[in-house]
């Protein structure tokens, strides 16, 4: 319950951040400033102090409040987690079910595809994809920024779901009710949709919650390498990267608070994912 509460709080903060950014973008009079403009050069590199009313967590190189950066960073992390999984889980689910149900050449093809992809270390593949997305624009989306990140993460992370769903489908395919459905001449796609998918859907839900964690961590790593979201977009990865040199000089706050935010979210998500599995996985229920 606590975990759910924490996640809900993050989602609320992210939604708040989203609304705020949107309002700031719309506002041409600059009464509501986007984070990028909340600069106070006269108070740069301040440690956390209570007097800095809106910056009690300290400030960065341009005098921007670490507190705001952490809060607005939630939006980036959560959208990345969400979007990456929205791409990855359905792809994994569909391919896994098709491969598991039809078998033979289709199965071989899909297995070949994901084995090949999983041969390449995930982070290397991510970096390579992000590099190829430089200066690429598809359907009006500039892939060198955050959209490319969604796609790159999606491409890398459907494999796990696909494997699990395929195995589960192969098992379900042999069960009596599927055999019965086939015997009365129900076409394959209908069987897949009606009888197989509902029974593997719990995997998708679990993978969704766990995949969130991976996506958030990857975003942080890529932003740290300068390949994630564009500079200036509030994100925890960008914060860690920008604070990397600062830590050396004893300016710990920006790094620490970004890491703390990631830690709490990732922990909450992981525990939540585990519990979800306990609740949804029929095998575990009997143990």
């Amino acid at each position: 319950m606590i975990c759910l509460g924490v996640i809900a709080a993050y989602v609320l903060i992210a939604l708040g951040g989203m609304v705020y950014t949107w309002v700031a973008e719309m506002d041409n009079e600059d009464e509501i400033l986007p984070l990028q403009q909340m600069v106070h050069y006269e108070r740069k590199d301040q440690p956390p102090r209570l007097e800095l009313s809106d910056a009690i967590l300290g400030t960065d190189w341009a005098g921007k409040s670490t507190l705001y950066k952490v809060l607005l960073g939630a939006k980036t992390s959560l959208t990345v987690g969400l979007m990456a999984n929205i791409i990855a889980v359905p792809v994994g689910l569909a391919l896994g079910a098709i491969a598991g149900y039809y078998g033979k050449a289709i199965d071989d093809g899909i297995v070949w595809l994901y084995t090949t992809l999983s041969c390449i270390p995930g982070i290397v593949l991510l970096i390579a994809l992000k590099y190829t997305f430089q200066d690429v624009t598809v359907l009006g989306l500039d892939l060198s920024g955050i959209h490319g990140l969604y796609i790159a993460l999606g491409v890398v992370s459907w494999i796990g779901t696909c494997r699990l769903v395929r195995a589960e489908t192969m098992k379900i395919r042999e069960l009596d009710y599927v055999a019965a459905a086939r015997a009365i001449g129900t076409p394959g796609p209908v069987i897949l949709l009606r009888h197989v998918l509902p029974n593997v859907f719990h995997i998708a839900i679990i993978r969704f919650s766990l995949g969130f964690v991976t996506a958030i961590k990857s975003e942080v790593i890529l932003s740290y390498l300068g390949l994630g979201v564009k500079p200036g977009v509030p994100s925890w990865g960008n914060m860690i990267d920008s604070a990397r040199m600062d830590l050396f000089m004893g300016r710990w706050w920006e790094l620490s608070f970004a890491v703390a935010a990631i830690f709490v979210l990732v922990l909450a998500l992981s525990i939540f994912g585990d519990r979800l599995r306990d609740a949804l996985d029929p095998r575990l229920r009997n143990v």
Partner: peptide, 13 residues
């Protein structure tokens, strides 16, 4: 690098 990005952000600001 962080320096270059700060420079860019400053210009943006």
């Amino acid at each position: 690098g962080a320096r270059t990005r700060r420079m860019g952000q400053f210009v943006q600001q």
